[in-house]
Structure formats: C-alpha cells, structure tokens
C-alpha cells in the first residue's frame, strides 16, 4: 500500500467516523449511463458505502450540471447507478436539516451546497457525518444527538406564572436569544466539533446553543434548572469555533456557550458548596 493510500485511509477514518479499506478511485468513465459524455463533464464521486463501522469507498461517475447540488449528485447515484444507496433528505431547500453529510472532509448541508463550490478538480468525496453511529452508507443514527439535547435540559419549560411584562424585540436578553433560534438541528456543528469527539458526555454545540436561547427567554420558568444542566457540560467547549465555521445558518454556538460559561461561573460563585444545595 502506498503512503498516499494509507494517509487517505486515516483521513477517512477520522472524518467519516468509520474505518475500512480504501480502493484507489478509478471511476468508470466509460460505463453506460445514458448521458452524452461529449457534452457533459463527469464528476468523480467517491461515496462511503457500508453498514455500521464496516465499509469502503466506492466510485461513481456522475454528469456535472449547472447549479448542481451535492444532494443532486447523491440522488443521481441512487436513481441511475445504484438504488441500494442509503441517504437521508426531506425538504431539499435548507429548512429541515436532514441531508447533512461530510463532503470533501467538511460537514455540510448537501441540498444547499453547490458542487461547483466544493469539488476539487471535478472530484467529490462524500461520507456520513462524524461523531454519530453510521446506520448504512450516508445515513447516520441521529438518536445520540437528540438524546444529549434532551439530557441537557434544552427544552422550553413554561413559566408557572404568566409573564405580564411584554417581551420586547430590542431588549438585550431577547436579542441574545434571537441570535440563536434559527437552528435547524442538522447536527453539522455536532459532527465538526472535536469536543464532541473527545468527550462522551459533552452535549454538543447545538444543544447548548438552544440552552442559551432558553436562559435568555423570560417566558421560560426553569432558568436554574437550565444553568444546573449547563454546568455539567458547557465547560467542555474549548472554543475551537469549528461550529461557527460550519453552521449553515450562520449561527455562532461558541458565543452562546461562552454566555452559558459566564452564567455558570456566576451561579457557582454565588452558592459556595459549604452553604449546601437548595
């Protein structure tokens, strides 16, 4: 095995969250696909195929078209080349957050990612999201992502007493909450985050970002519970800011988590352990 092949294997093992052997990509340019290759350039597409942790890269030739998205490419492979390819999508317009995959080493929402923007010399490498168990091919099991979200108490708890004072859009807390509410739960930040990879008990950027919006919501009745929950995990954020780099809706979870750290810091100092817990 050449050094290059070894290198790509380790890269694949890290980024895809899966391991296995890699075959050199020799795409079947000559295969019959029903397209006129003389007028259409071919994309060389490597896709991770396999179940669970076992799998390998397979190559497909896909015609390149104008304004083609990565999801279009994957769909083409399933419809015209190999119907057994497993992947997940729903809305196709960047709202539902279900089509996230690792594209050329970086987690992306494939329905809004143009091939022309991410392909390297006409090549694409598509694998499942990192940090989540692979079900098959490009489909990961999202359960751990949402279970951690639940365990982080990142859900709205209605205030037992009605909030009389109207929430104004311009007030600082509301602005802080507004900055984080456009999350589409795509788990792209979760896949990009090294702290998630390093700490099994780290809730991840998305859940903590949601927690921060709740802490800033006056209508929420369990601020203390939210901060208690935040205190068990938010310090594991190492401010790499990968989440902010990759977030498709341009949120900045690192800022949100920094806010949680500040509040946890204050809350911890406000109640020393020798005073006991309330």
């Amino acid at each position: 095995m050449t050094a290059r092949a070894t290198k790509s294997r380790s890269r694949a093992g890290r980024i895809g969250g899966v391991s296995g052997s890699i075959v050199k990509c020799i795409c079947p340019r000559g295969v019959k696909t029903g397209y006129d290759w003389s007028v259409m350039a071919a994309l060389e597409v490597e896709i991770w195929r396999g179940e669970g942790n076992d799998g390998s890269w397979r190559c497909y030739a896909v015609p390149h078209q104008a304004n083609q998205t990565v999801l279009d490419v994957v769909t083409h492979v399933q419809r015209h080349i190999d119907p057994s390819l497993a992947y997940r999508f729903a809305c196709r317009v960047g709202m539902c957050g279900s089509c996230a995959m690792t594209v050329n080493g970086r987690p992306r929402w494939t329905c809004r990612t143009h091939v022309s923007r991410v392909s390297r010399k006409g090549r694409l490498r598509i694998s499942p999201l990192r940090n989540l168990p692979v079900i098959r091919d490009l489909a990961v099991d999202m359960a751990p992502f949402f279970e951690k979200w639940r365990d982080a108490e990142a859900r709205f708890v209605p205030s037992p007493v009605p909030v009389e004072e109207p929430v104004r859009p311009g007030e600082p807390a509301r602005k802080a909450a507004d900055a984080g509410i456009e999350c589409i739960n795509c788990a792209i930040c979760y896949a990009a985050c090294d702290s998630v990879a390093w700490n099994p008990d780290y809730p991840g950027p998305a859940a903590l970002n949601r927690l921060w919006t709740l802490v800033n919501d006056r209508r929420d009745g369990d601020q203390d519970g939210h901060l208690e929950a935040a205190g068990t995990g938010c310090h594991l954020c190492r401010s790499h800011q990968e989440c902010a780099e990759v977030c498709p809706t341009n949120l900045n979870p690192t800022t949100a988590i920094a806010g949680l750290k500040r509040e946890v810091f204050r809350r911890t100092l406000a109640r020393p352990p020798w005073e006991g817990r309330q």
């Binding site: 208690e228 205190g231 068990t232 995990g233 310090h235 750290k261 946890v264 810091f265 809350r267 911890t268 100092l269 352990p273 817990r277």
Partner: peptide, 12 residues
C-alpha cells in the same frame, strides 16, 4: 456540580 466547580476554580 463538581465539573462546574472545577471550571470556576480553573478560571479564578
């Protein structure tokens, strides 16, 4: 609780 304390003491 322990983690929150370690974090706070670390920053202090």
């Amino acid at each position: 609780m322990k983690e929150a304390w370690l974090f706070t003491v670390q920053r202090l």
